[in-house]
Amino acid sequence: MLNYLWGSMILIGILFSTFSGNLSNITNAAINSSREAVNICLTMLGILAMWTGLISIAEKSGLINSLSKKMMPLLKFLFPQLSEKSKAMQYICTNIIANMLGLSWAATPAGLKAMEELQKINPQKDIASREMCMFMIINMSSLQIVSINIIAYRAQYNSMNPSEIIGPGLFATLVSTISAIIITKIFEKCDRA
């Protein structure tokens, strides 16, 4: 999947610019993008290290555990095969909580750890497990309760009421997350690979 996605993005881009006559942009695009990636990683290095440090205190002291317990009934429904005490479940929980608070830079490390743990109990190492699919689809259905950046951008462009979109945004987020759960449950029934 990713083999084709990645390759075809580049090939289509180059093919297209050959015909539209802006092939000269491609070199710059490749160089600038790779440089941009380094800048993002440098920023992430500091923020991620700071956050994983802080989170590991919360982990060791049992704070995450006590927060997780409140979400367990829902998670149990989503991941019936995972035990409540498993590390995978804890990381999934952290990821979901961080996503809800809009701390995407905090959600990513927990999410990657969750995938690592899920991979350990995955019987076929190159095929996504059921739990991975469920976790990823929920993760990508957008869980954020308040999109604070959007409100800031709106204020920057002189909106009369920048925060007026909180309610509608929350509603739309609920719709996408609930549909994600329903859709995945249906796919699980259809696909028994």
């Binding site: 999947m1 990713l2 995938m115 996504a128 991975m132 990823m136 957008s142």
Partner: peptide, 29 residues
């Protein structure tokens, strides 16, 4: 982006219905 980062980090090649499901959920949103 999310699919690439997460699945590449654990070297999963076949992602089954993940892309379909995520796109449908986003469409609903």
């Amino acid at each position: 982006y999310t699919i690439s980062i997460y699945f590449m980090s654990v070297k999963i090649k076949k992602i089954r219905y993940t892309l379909k499901g995520a796109l449908l959920a986003n469409l609903c949103g």
